[in-house]
Amino acid sequence: MEDPDDDLDPNGQPDYSQPPGLDQHPDFLEFLDRADDELRQLCDRDIPELGQRPDPWTREGLQVIAQAALRELPDIRSLTREQAALFGRMARGIGHTFVLAGGGHWEYMVLSWRGDRPAPPAPVVVPASSPAWVTPGTLVGGVILSGTDIGLLDLYDHTVADHAAWVAAGTPDPHDWFAQQH
Rank of each mutant, 00 (worst) to 15 (best):
R53S: 02
S78E: 14
G102P: 12
E49L: 06
T97I: 10
S129C: 14
L100W: 08
A101R: 03
E107W: 03
R59Q: 13
G102L: 06
G137V: 03
R117E: 15
H96V: 10
A122N: 12
Q52W: 02
A68M: 00
G141K: 00
A68Q: 01
A119R: 15
S112A: 15
V143L: 04
A68L: 00
P123Y: 10
L100M: 14
P74K: 03
V126R: 15
A84P: 00
G95L: 07
A85L: 14
G61I: 01
G142Q: 12
R92S: 00
M109D: 14
G115V: 11
E107T: 06
W133G: 04
V124K: 03
L79H: 08
A85G: 09
Q83S: 07
E60M: 05
I76W: 11
L145F: 08
T58M: 08
L62N: 09
P74M: 03
P56C: 03
T97W: 07
A101S: 12
G104V: 09
S146V: 00
P121W: 04
G137E: 11
I65P: 02
E49P: 08
E72D: 15
A128M: 01
G88Y: 06
R114E: 15
R89G: 05
A132W: 14
P120I: 02
G103C: 13
W106D: 11
P118L: 14
S146C: 02
A128I: 00
G141Y: 00
L100N: 10
